[in-house]
Design a protein around this nucleic acid. Structure first.
Lengths: 124, 124
DNA sequence: CATCCCATGCGACATGAGTCGCATTTCTTT
DNA sequence: AAAGAAATGCGACTCATGTCGCATGGGATG
């Protein structure tokens, strides 16, 4: 299942460093989202239900870690976007994501592979 | 206001040819969306409320036409996507949309301009 | 003119996401 | 051990969107 925009923000943080507590994640997002702590927790709970993150009880706190792969997730977003918005069916241009702070060169290679795969699957 | 995915589909059709009736639009989307005619109409109604399309009563039928610009709309999607998913702040790669069946070379030029503008506005 | 069809206006329901608050449980610190 | 702080579980509300159905009204046709 594709995460929502907000969920993607949480995943990005977790991809950088995990596991983390709800409180830690909340503090990082506070400035941007202007949320109450409850909202952060609820979102995290729902992400757990959807298997986007795992929860591990460590003593009395819950630790969250990503349960979906970063490159796969980004690839899915890219493919969806290209098709839905621009109706691009062919191979997606690499240039689309070079320059992103989120992924390094290695990961860009993986991304391309995945996109190519997605494209083929969809062809059928 | 940014259209939803579904609304974008309607806009795409209207950009190709307008004005059109709900019935005509419905027939084009029937295959893809598997919707009842009521759903099509409701969506169109709501798009009118949001000023995404205009409605003109022609006799006893309503004619719909796009009320938002194609290139502007696509640019807004592209900018949002690049930032939200890949955290690209710099100029967006042109390659992102070359090859799209939706826009011709002229429009690609416009798109680039708009993206550059959006980027600058956002910098502040 | 009576009838039938299609268009419209509009109400309605379900689900998901955004957003919070509260009561209960569990640490930690005197 | 008692008290206070912090974490959790979970319910709840609102709004947008997807998705229909129904009742009403105006044209076309025999």
């Amino acid at each position: 299942m594709r995460p929502t925009s907000t969920e993607l923000e949480f995943l990005k943080l977790l991809w950088k460093e995990s596991p983390r507590t709800a409180r830690e994640l909340h503090q990082e997002l506070e400035g941007i989202l202007q949320w109450g702590y409850s909202s952060t927790r609820k979102t995290l709970d729902r992400m757990a239900e959807k298997a986007l993150v795992t929860v591990t009880k460590e003593g009395n706190v819950n630790l969250f870690a990503p349960q979906v792969d970063k490159v796969k997730t980004l690839a899915s977003f890219a493919a969806d976007f290209a098709k839905r918005v621009f109706e691009l069916d062919g191979p997606l241009p690499t240039a689309m994501f070079t320059g992103s702070k989120l992924i390094d060169d290695d990961e860009i290679d993986q991304l391309e592979h995945l996109l190519e795969q997605l494209r083929k699957e969809q062809e059928q």
